[in-house]
């Protein structure tokens, strides 16, 4: 697909989504959501208020922490499980089933463990986002072509050099894919966490809007979250494609 076609596709999808949004508004009325243009204007207005940024900073900081922890722990565990076949064989099915259970059911446990406040949100983001990073990394290490490791030995590399100059670059594209999936799930985890038990953050802002029937606020905040998530995801996808393209 050329760049131009990609741009065209993107524009068409955007227009289709705006049309659906407008149609939903026509159907449900202002009791459920506000129309696209008005929402966009209010969203811009919100972006100029310190209150919004107070909440946004809370969310972004929790989100950044959970992404960082998911990435570091996820890659480390993935490399470890991948390098030691037995540990990997034990861990992989456990992680895969853990990945499928609805983690929302674990939230009360997280609250009891970490208390109300940012650490519970971060932990909740991490349990969402870390597992795909581990699984992608583990899979990449397990499936590395053995001849690359044999080549490293024949070039007289030490184990540390092999890890740094052969193993890591060989699995990097897969790690990038894992991070991209983990990134979106971390955001989901943090927002859900804020919706259930928090007095601050974007998730709280949305749930607060719903509770006080502030449709304008809920719709605008949702729009901001969507724009942020889609933008970040596209950037990561581009990086992902570039890494895969080389190999």
């Amino acid at each position: 697909m050329t760049r131009r076609e990609g741009l065209l596709d993107g524009t068409l999808i955007l227009l289709a989504m705006l049309a659906v949004w407008q149609a939903l508004y026509q159907y449900a009325g202002s009791a459920a959501l506000t129309p696209p243009w008005a929402t966009a204007r209010y969203a811009v207005e919100l972006l100029g208020t310190p209150t919004f940024w107070g909440h946004a900073t809370q969310t972004l900081s929790a989100f950044a922490w959970s992404v960082a922890i998911s990435a570091v722990l996820g890659i480390a565990l993935g490399l470890w499980f991948g390098a030691f076949r037995f540990a990997g064989d034990v861990a992989e099915p456990m992680l895969a089933s853990l990945y499928t259970i609805p983690k929302v059911t674990l939230y009360p446990v997280m609250l009891l463990l970490f208390g109300l406040g940012p650490s519970a949100k971060i932990a909740f983001g991490v349990i969402h986002g870390m597992i795909p990073v581990v699984l992608f990394t583990l899979g990449a290490v397990k499936n590395i072509r053995p001849v690359l490791l044999r080549a490293a030995r024949s070039l007289r590399l030490s184990p540390m050099q092999t890890a740094r100059f052969v193993l890591v670059p060989a699995v990097l594209p897969e790690i990038a894919s894992g991070l991209r999936v983990g990134f979106s799930l971390c955001l989901l985890g943090v927002l859900i966490g804020e919706m259930f038990a928090s007095q601050r953050g974007i998730g709280f802002l949305i749930i607060n809007g719903i509770n006080s029937h502030n449709v304008k606020l809920t719709t605008a905040v949702t729009l901001i979250v969507i724009v942020f998530a889609v933008g970040a995801n596209s950037a990561l996808l581009a990086l992902d494609r570039r890494l895969h393209h080389r190999g």
Binding site: S154, P169, A170, R246
Partner: peptide
């Protein structure tokens, strides 16, 4: 040192 090996499979590093 002084021994070089070329394998049957393609062992070039795809990221370089």
């Amino acid at each position: 040192d002084g021994v070089g090996v070329v394998f049957q499979e393609d062992a070039s590093f795809p990221w370089l």
